[in-house]
Design a protein around this nucleic acid. Structure first.
Lengths: 212, 212, 212, 212
DNA sequence: TATGAATGAGGGTTCATTCAT
DNA sequence: AATGAATGAACCCTCATTCAT
């Protein structure tokens, strides 16, 4: 099981460790039961801390929600960054990022499920998730790979598709869904279905080589 | 002794009027604060009724949620049906339906906002909303207008885009968003951006003629 | 199924018939779910009457409880009176009455169950049930059949045993329980176990003859 | 960090004290108004605590009911155990136990009244109360003191008599009722009235000697 | 006589948050 | 830094009873 914040190394202060325990506890519970479905007391209990201790680390419940969501998206970005940033083609980056993001959410369902809840119950998640997406799309636009003028609504659409992909996979759909979401992203950005398919397949091969 | 038509306002029974008052109150409040964010007492108060009266009309809170959501989607479908069903081309129907659905949600923001909340907090809404969508897509597929194989994930994707469109408009985006969402739908279903654009524009002209 | 108040004969006014419908409905429901577990609205619904109609026949809920309990105990007394009153020996009457009361409660479980609830939730039932008991015991005392001085506590004890007997039978115990309760009654009143047994057996034979 | 013994009143933890306050409040109120007739809010108020505090100590209302009933029956058993267990004759034990149980219920009317309600509204009380009774009866049977075959119905009958005895005393009857209930128990178990009387009187003398 | 809509107090329960220790 | 007891408002829901028609 991956930890959002690992390392009990002496480097990390006790305060930070306790905070991490709370964050991890919250992640476990919120992935299971949703954000509104998880109470502060439950989080404290899961972290083996007293009720009131929670408030020494977070001003209120919303603050830990933000922390958990940031931690998760950060971890997911980190997982995909090394390969993703090595791709020079913006279209390839978009394709890879989408696929990978969904794959990670499926491989680490706690993260995926938390995201799903967060999309519903914590609006600010949008910023965290779209950060990488905006960069890749902007790169592709700059490179003339996309014909669609890029604005907020395009990003919203891409995000909506990403979300649908994660949801599908968590409900049991196969990995193909990730590939399709990637192609849909490219189509939204103006590529034809055929072109999008070609890019996505090529990206996969490239990514495998970099990964292996 | 039941009276068939004896009340001062013979059109609607008192029971029906009170029920409507509750449903409308619920719609107003839920559009504003969400489904979970609206309490039964608030609904009763907004309808100027006593707390317990609510339960003479709905078995529990979930029942009024269902009632409100169905009422809204039904109303929206009715608003768009006459023109939509007159279109013979499946692609045109998809384009028109999407655009129109978003337009209605924007014109009647209570409805739109309720839908947004329902997407998050009332899973069953999906069935109500996708009903027309499935029909139009199926028609287009039958007519060979779409190349994308249609399965649950495609529908989920279309729904996600629809949702993004409504959300954008409620946040102040202009009517162009509806048109774009329509084109995105067609792109997802396999059409190129250019083709999608052509179909959508043609559909709009046709629809205007039918409407006026 | 026996009716507490039968006869829809023209003799009986409509008012009385409606009242009876409410009483019977209440009996059915209260036997099933207890007195506190049965709401006024449920009673009205079961009687196919409107909610408010109830209050045209009973001042409040407690009044129908009393009515139902009286009706049931009256019916039970009537069922056993013809044979019981023909017995001249007070001890025989006690034995027969006890046995018969339990037998009736078992044969008409609605009645039995109502009584069990009433014992718990409607103190006044005691008067209704002990009426016959007091008479029979007094007769036996007068005849010198019982040595135990009779006071309220003896009656309470006999009632408690009767109740235990009904409860047992409703829980599935066989008819033997009624016979034993009868003997226990006689023992409480001062007879030895052997004597009590003899009287009870003789009474049974006698009663059968009168019955057949 | 848990402190083993640091509070100003080291004897009992604050938690235990608050729990006791709730239990005692519940006992007071339930003795007065019955179990169903006592609300959680009333208990909290009587204990001078906030409504929600109750749920830090009991999962739900049923839990405090069980706790109160167990506490009462346990206390009553403890009060009578030292003498009762010193009696070697099963019949004496039954006689003493019954008398004593009723005497305690009368001396501590809160306990008695709670029991009366519990008999009606909390079925599980039967097990708690009959525990000692079953042991004593079994002992007497083993010793050949009782001729009545012992089964569930006999126990139910004994319990019913015990209950009648407590009820009588709470309604103002004198201590004689306890003695009579004891004799009735023996009669039910097969002893003649005279024998039962003898045993009971002898037991009383013995018990007084042990007590004094 | 009958209806049935309406009331509103009260029930059990949850939970984010505070605070004395 | 940590505890955990305590708070109290809010939530959903039930029901005996009233009243205009």
């Amino acid at each position: 099981m991956k930890r959002v914040k690992a390392s009990r190394s002496p480097r990390v202060s006790k305060r930070a460790r306790t905070r991490a325990r709370l964050t991890e506890a919250a992640l476990r519970l919120m992935a299971e039961s949703g954000i509104n479905g998880t109470s502060v007391s439950e989080i404290a209990a899961e972290a083996e801390l007293a009720n009131g201790t929670f408030y020494l680390y977070f001003r209120d419940k919303s603050e830990i929600v933000a922390a958990v969501c940031q931690a998760v998206t950060l971890a997911m970005h980190n997982e995909m960054n090394s390969v993703r940033l090595s791709l020079e083609d913006g279209a390839a980056r978009v394709a890879f990022g989408t696929q990978q993001f969904i794959a990670i959410a499926a491989a680490e369902p706690k993260w995926g499920r938390l995201l799903m809840w967060a999309f519903s119950e914590y609006a600010a998640i949008k910023e965290d998730v779209t950060r990488y997406m905006r960069m890749d799309v902007a790169l592709g636009v700059e490179q003339g790979r996309f014909t669609e003028p890029v604005d907020e609504f395009v990003i919203d659409t891409l995000l909506a598709i990403l979300r649908a992909g994660i949801s599908s996979r968590l409900d049991g759909a196969g990995a193909g869904v990730g590939a399709r979401a990637a192609e849909y992203h490219l189509r939204i950005l103006g590529m034809s279905a055929a072109e999008a398919h070609r890019v996505r397949v090529a990206t996969n091969k490239l990514a495998e080589r970099r990964n292996g």
